[in-house]
Design a protein around this nucleic acid. Structure first.
Lengths: 213, 213
DNA sequence: GATTAATTTAAACGAGTGTTTAAATTAACT
DNA sequence: AGTTAATTTAAACACTCGTTTAAATTAATC
């Protein structure tokens, strides 16, 4: 194959960091390849195009996270008594934090990439995720719905997207927020601490009774 | 001054729409000026640079929204009994919807711009907002804090940013979400309906008791 | 109406983008 | 070893970008 580290891997490693930090379109292939210390043309040689590189970067995380998340959710689901929303969301913590073992800072990189992908480039990534990992997503949605049966399906649709926005935006600005929190309150939170802060917020929001007047 | 509509206004009108739809860096000055039917160079003539155009687009909304929001919040705050979080958030509905009278679709454009600004272009817009409208923001934060005194200040900091993420992400993808909701559940929500859906979610999240073990 | 200022215009600039090409190099295989 | 395939490389291509320039036009002022 190749000497030192695989060229393909070097590109993915450099790309995911830069994509997470500055967004997809703000990151040029020249910046990626110079950080990765590989030739510019190797991106197109190994991945075909920048768009496919973006998908490859995300897929490397999704392929680890999604099956792992499904397993955790199903483990809860098989329990006789229904799990609480807090438990369901918390079940995702382990799969998320395991991404840190895959790569340094993997957890926050993954969540930031997810957010960037959802907001930038309307559609093509959303389509990629739902068609490739739709079953895993369905597992999660079903668990949440069963855990909050008093919320109508259409309402739950909106609330789960509120939740996605909450976590994704939080992680996209996690570094900046952490700086402010450290300066103003002397707090130093790692990724896990922030996740543990946001889960009760999301669980409460998803489960709050629908107002009827 | 000028014939037909003011050139400056034509630029702002075209720019805000495109910025909200596709983001700042994805929107070229050439696209803006062609939609506005003005010359390319007029942007730099009237605004100096693209960065200043972005700030001008946002300022046009913030100058209307922020004072109006402060008035509504203060009206609540002067009431003898403390307002609920739901009431505080709901107090922002009127100022938000009044932006629709300023310009067609003004409400959602404003919220989308806010989100784009927060996620793209790290810092320069965040700085612009906090230094120019800091007092109004403080009014809001104080009202929320007084309404949920059981939440420590540092925790509230995080939860308010969760809230910002929720609303901003929701609005950024409101069009796409509405399409799906219409197809899957036959729902057709306007901007106000979505805002009224998201407020209970946010209020419940902000107020949920802090876990202590 | 003449003179000055403000605005609009077309064209170019320089820098940056993703992608392609064809030659050079390295690895794999018989 | 020699031959084929895979990879790396430097250079160029074709565009798009924000910005600047200097001339043309319109508006305002005396």
């Amino acid at each position: 194959m190749a000497s030192r580290t695989d060229t393909k891997t070097r590109i993915l490693d450099a790309a995911e960091k830069l994509f997470a930090e500055r967004g997809f379109s703000e990151t040029s292939l020249r910046l990626i390849t110079s950080k990765a210390e590989v030739n510019l043309a190797s991106v197109n040689y190994h991945f075909g195009s920048k768009k496919e590189l973006i998908r490859a970067v995300l897929a490397r995380y999704l392929d680890v996270f999604m099956p792992s998340a499904s397993i955790e959710i199903n483990r809860l689901h098989l329990a006789p008594e229904h799990a609480s929303l807090n438990e369901i969301f918390s079940a995702l913590i382990k799969p998320l934090l395991e991404l840190n073992k895959v790569r340094n800072g993997g957890t926050i990189i993954f969540l930031q990439l997810l957010g960037r992908g959802y907001i930038e480039s309307q559609g093509h990534l959303r389509w990629f995720i739902t068609t490739h990992y739709g079953e895993h997503l369905a597992t999660f949605v079903k668990a949440v719905a069963a855990s909050a049966p008093h919320i109508p399906q259409a309402e739950m649709f909106w609330r789960l997207h509120f939740t996605l926005g909450t976590i994704v935006f939080t992680m996209a600005s996690a570094d900046a927020l952490n700086e402010i929190a450290a300066a103003d309150y002397g707090e130093h939170n790692n990724t896990e601490a922030i996740i543990r802060k946001v889960i009760p917020y999301m669980a409460a929001g998803v489960a709050v009774p629908v107002l009827t007047n």
